[in-house]
Amino acid sequence: MTLAKRLLPAVSLILLFLFFASQSAPFRSMDNITNIVGQNAWLLIASMGMTIVILGGGIDLSVGSVMAFSGVVSVHLMVNMKVPVPLAMLAGLAAGGVAGAINGLLVTKLRIPAFIATLGMLLIARGAALSLSKGVTVDGAPEAFMQFAGGKFFNIPTPLIMTIAIAGLVALAMHFTKFGRYVQAIGSNAEAARVSGVPVHKTLLWTYILGGIFAGFAGLVEAARQGSGNPTSAEGYELDVVTAVVVGGASLSGGEGRVSGTILGVLLVAFLRNGLNLIGVEPFLQKAYIGALILAAVAFDQWARRKSAA
C-alpha cells in the first residue's frame, strides 16, 4: 500500500471533522461524540469481521441479516425462554458463527463464489430471524442486557471500550499471528499460498466464521441499544460495512487492507452521516453522499495504482 493511500483516509477524516465542527456547534459537543460512538459501535465491530474476510479475498453480504438473526435469537431466548442473559448472548454469537461457518463451507467446499454464497445467506438468515420471531419484534429485553450497550465503566461508555478492545485484538491477530499472515497470503494469491503449504480452506473457513461472529456481536449491540430483537432491523447494513472497509483502503480483490484503515473508514462514514444531519442536509440525500464517498475512495485507489505502476 502506498503512503498516499494510507494517509488519505486520515487526512480526509481530519478535514471532514474540522469542516463539520466549524459549521455546527452541536457537532463538536462531547455528548454528540459519545452519541456517534454508541450509534456506530455495531459498524466498527462488523467492519472488523469484514476486514478479515476481504483481506482473504472474499466478501460477506450477509452481515445485516446475520445481525438481525443474532439479535432475535438472543432476545428471544432471554425474553421468551427465560435463558440467563450471558448465555442468551453467547447463543446469539454462536448463531452468527454458524451462519459464518455455512458461508465458509459454501465458499470452500462447494466452491460457490463468495458474492453468491453470502447473498444466499443474506436471505436465509433474514428468513430465519423472521420465522423465529413470527415476523414481529421481540420486546422487553431485561435491563441487564440493555446495560451491555448503554452502560458506563469508569465513566467511559461501554461501546467505546468494546470497540477499542475488538479493534486491538483484530489488529494483533492480523499482524502478529500466522493466521493473519495466511489470510493475507491467500487474499494475494491463493494458489501460491496453497503451494506454500498454507491450509487455504481451513483459513478461509475461519475468516467467514469470524465474520459471522463479529456480525453477531454487532447485532447484539444494536439489540441491546434498542432493547429488542427486531427481525427487520439492520437491512442493507452490509453496504455500510463494505463502504467503511473499502474507504479505509482495503482492496476488494484481496490481500490489501489494515485494521487502522478500517477504523478510519468507519469514522469517516459515521462522522459524515452525523455531520450531514446536523448541518441540515435532508436525509434522502445523505445516501448519495455516502455513495460519492465510496466512489471517490475507489477512484483514488485506482489512480494511485496506475501512478505507482508507471
Partner: peptide, 13 residues
Amino acid sequence: KKTGLAIALPIRH
C-alpha cells in the same frame, strides 16, 4: 507469478 508468489506482498511475506 500465477502460482509461486504473492506479487503485491513484501519479500518477507
